[in-house]
Amino acid sequence: MSIPSQAFEQYTVAFYNLENLFDYQNDKHILDDDFTALGRNEWNETRYFKKLQKISDAISQIGADFTGKLPAVLGVAEVENKKVLNDLVNQPKLKNHDYKYVHFNSPDERGIDVALLYRADVFELLESKPLSLLIHNDQGVRDTTRDILYVKGKLAGTMLHIYVNHWPSRRDGSGTTEYKRALAAQTLLKHIEQIDVDGNRTKRLEKDNTFIMIMGDFNDDPENDSIKKGILPYGFDNITAPLKNFHRGSLNHRFKWNLFDQIMVSENLYNDIPGDLYVHKADIFDDIMLRQWKGKYRGQPARTFAGGRYAGGYSDHFPVYAVLRRNQLY
């Protein structure tokens, strides 16, 4: 007889691109005009709080089939500011679970940032900082894209170094923008080398482990060079890569599945050290509740906007997540 998963001490760590989680107030410092009542998207209080309700409902169920609890740690992308994060964690499905968040305003011209939500009852925040991406075009003009968010903390007593990413988009073509994502990988690795100078992420030590989790929307698939050559050879495993196939991914573009949303972990998160956390499994939370349920886009993510039309869905991305378990003490 199999042992129920709830019998183990385990925690969900997840990432979710929230698809333009803007409030409905105009901010003169960013390009958010579309997300106002008079803007192209006719974004108003009713639509805003409907999205918050749907997103919070989705978050409350990520990994719950395995852990029986809400995510301990959740990286998010495409959030406008602290107000939307505060409104999100105060939604009925989340507000009684002690969620806090880490957020810094980035130089992104649209004002969309990354952030980290965490349950303060199981995660102790120790340090956080934004890592700026200094990317310039051929004319020397800076591409003001999202920062990488670095967070150091203890998950149920185990030290974790977490990086939340939303790398430059492919809007101008995957080939012409490839160098931007390569530079993002270099920026990430430079900081990793600073916090792990001895390369402990590749060793299964019995103490002083440097456990690292890299999550985000990378705007590249697992097989692309920015991931396959830019990160994985330096002591990391892409635990979400096996999830991608012809029928499955975290987003769908022109009826083709991509897995831009990924979680990578340091090699030492595969271990049997008594008392330490280890990676048990990874998955895409692509429950039917998050999908289009009819029409030619049936099965794809139920978006907030589709083809310029308000659709009232969740997001154009599915969340991805990992379940961490604690090794038994002998």
Score class of each variant (00 low, 15 high):
315 S>G: 05
284 I>H: 08
261 D>C: 05
309 R>I: 15
211 F>I: 07
205 L>G: 04
218 F>L: 14
283 D>E: 15
195 I>N: 10
229 K>Q: 11
230 G>A: 04
198 D>V: 06
218 F>S: 00
247 H>E: 14
251 L>Y: 06
286 D>H: 14
246 F>H: 13
290 L>A: 03
200 N>P: 04
238 N>E: 07
226 S>E: 06
262 Q>Y: 00
206 E>R: 14
204 R>W: 03
263 I>G: 04
317 H>W: 12
236 F>A: 03
253 H>I: 15
273 I>P: 06
192 I>K: 04
203 K>M: 15
192 I>Y: 04
194 Q>A: 10
233 P>W: 01
196 D>Q: 03
229 K>W: 02
224 N>V: 02
276 D>G: 00
185 A>Q: 03
223 E>F: 14
283 D>H: 12
185 A>D: 01
314 Y>H: 09
317 H>P: 08
192 I>E: 03
213 M>T: 13
262 Q>D: 07
282 A>L: 02
278 Y>D: 05
299 G>K: 07
315 S>V: 07
259 L>P: 05
314 Y>Q: 01
183 L>K: 08
233 P>N: 05
222 P>C: 09
193 E>H: 14
224 N>M: 14
228 K>G: 00
232 L>R: 05
195 I>K: 01
304 T>E: 07
305 F>S: 04
250 S>K: 10
297 Y>I: 00
221 D>W: 03
229 K>Y: 03
299 G>H: 08
301 P>T: 10
218 F>V: 06
237 D>T: 13
302 A>Q: 04
249 G>H: 09
219 N>G: 01
287 D>P: 01
244 K>G: 09
224 N>W: 06
250 S>E: 09
193 E>W: 11
216 G>W: 02
315 S>H: 10
262 Q>S: 08
247 H>C: 00
252 N>L: 11
241 A>N: 13
224 N>A: 13
211 F>M: 14
242 P>M: 10
283 D>K: 10
191 H>Q: 08
309 R>N: 11
217 D>L: 09
269 L>D: 05
236 F>K: 02
185 A>R: 01
286 D>C: 02
210 T>M: 12
248 R>F: 02
309 R>W: 01
234 Y>M: 01
194 Q>T: 12
200 N>H: 15
206 E>W: 07
284 I>M: 05
222 P>Q: 10
244 K>C: 02
260 F>G: 04
309 R>M: 11
231 I>W: 01
237 D>V: 14
227 I>T: 07
186 Q>D: 11
262 Q>T: 07
186 Q>Y: 05
219 N>T: 09
296 K>N: 13
239 I>M: 06
281 K>D: 06
274 P>N: 10
295 G>F: 08
258 N>G: 00
185 A>F: 07
231 I>T: 09
270 Y>T: 13
232 L>W: 06
292 Q>A: 07
314 Y>K: 06
190 K>W: 01
